[in-house]
């Protein structure tokens, strides 16, 4: 089942999705790459401008809608999903995207994230995770690592971070993926898969804030180290990583462990990825693999089919109308009535 995206007769180019507004992110910001790939994906899937809506909250990432020549709502802090939910529930035909960040989506907007995901609206949530508050100039965020020194934590962060993928899987998202701003092809492919998924697609994008948290994901982006620090998830394939692709992930009971291929270990001994598993437990286990103990998985953790909120709501409306269309006169005259002569 794929998303029913309203399609243009002739595909628009990526450029045709750009608005006439100047992009105002800091030079070198990871957001530029994401913006470019989203436009490319909209072109690839044949989206139309008039049926596409970008909704955002507040934060650097949330300026995104202004740069797209589609319909857009730049709303209030943390609440983008509230707006998107109402819009999609009212008009299921729209192609709705939500752009949020680690502060907007997981701190002030954490509640809405859980509920939008569990309702499984057919929307795409792009969570730009830079592990810092950028627009307010450098306070720690709910994904900042413990001990991190920021303007608001001069002696180091003392709260444990949230892991966005674990949160999404905990809320039983039907599509969960992770990608990285500078891995352009992987970024585009992942966003396209999210766009084509019918149901809530949650994509965590590692995004570099070169002003307030530069290099936060260097382990995952540096050419020298990335092969050892990330493992790409491919449905039906074993988890293999490393520059020489000699290392793999094996399950030891309920815990993953790193093994080296060859030393009595074959590919068949490794954990094979199953993004379609009904139970989210395996996907959750993968979401618990963190640097530096483990290579961090990127790609699609979970992609399962579930009915969407807006479709079931629309079905209920249609069924109610089929049982007898409501007539206002009849409704006003419901119940016991009496006539005064």
């Amino acid at each position: 089942m794929s998303s029913q995206i309203p399609v243009e007769a002739v595909k628009l180019t990526a450029k045709q999705f750009a608005s006439n507004q100047d992009v105002r992110w800091c030079p070198g910001c990871g957001d530029y790459s994401i913006l470019a790939q989203v436009k490319k994906v909209l072109s690839n899937i044949g989206a139309s401008r008039e049926n596409t809506v970008f909704v955002s909250g507040i934060g650097c990432s949330s300026r995104f809608p202004y740069y797209m020549d589609t319909y857009g709502l730049h709303s209030i802090h943390g609440r983008a999903l509230g707006f998107a939910s109402g819009l999609k529930a009212y008009n299921p035909d729209l192609n709705v995207w939500v752009v949020t960040g680690d502060g907007d989506g997981l701190s002030i907007g954490g509640n809405h994230l859980l509920h939008a995901i569990r309702r499984n609206f057919d929307i795409n949530i792009l969570l730009f995770n830079n592990r810092i508050y950028g627009l307010t100039k450098g306070q720690y965020s709910p994904t900042s690592e413990i001990g991190k020194r920021t303007k608001s934590t001069p002696d180091g962060v003392i709260d444990y971070p949230l892991h966005p993928i674990s949160v999404a899987i905990g809320a039983e998202a039907s599509f969960v993926a992770r990608t990285v701003d500078v891995h352009v092809k992987h970024l585009a492919d992942t966003i396209e898969r999210a766009a084509r998924h019918k149901g809530t697609s949650f994509v965590e994008i590692y995004q570099n804030c070169n002003i307030f948290n530069d290099g936060a994901f260097q382990y995952a982006t540096d050419k020298q180290t990335k092969a050892d620090n990330i493992v790409e998830l491919v449905h039906g394939r074993p988890l293999i990583f490393g520059k020489e692709r000699t290392k793999g992930i094996r399950l030891n009971g309920l815990s993953p462990e790193i093994v080296t291929l060859g030393e009595g270990v074959t590919e068949d001994d490794l954990l094979f990825h199953d993004e379609k598993a009904r139970e989210p437990s395996l996907a959750y286990l993968l979401s618990r693999m963190h640097h530096p103990e483990f290579p961090e998985p990127i790609g699609v953790f979970r992609a399962v089919e579930r009915s969407t909120y807006e479709d079931v709501l629309q079905d209920q409306v249609t069924a109610a109308i089929e049982r007898g269309k409501g007539d206002l006169d009849d409704i006003l005259n419901e119940g016991d009535t009496w006539v005064v002569a």
């Binding site: 709303s75 209030i76 529930a89």
Partner: peptide
């Protein structure tokens, strides 16, 4: 927020 989204 949902109401405003639907109004949009």
């Amino acid at each position: 927020c949902a109401a405003i989204g639907s109004s949009f």
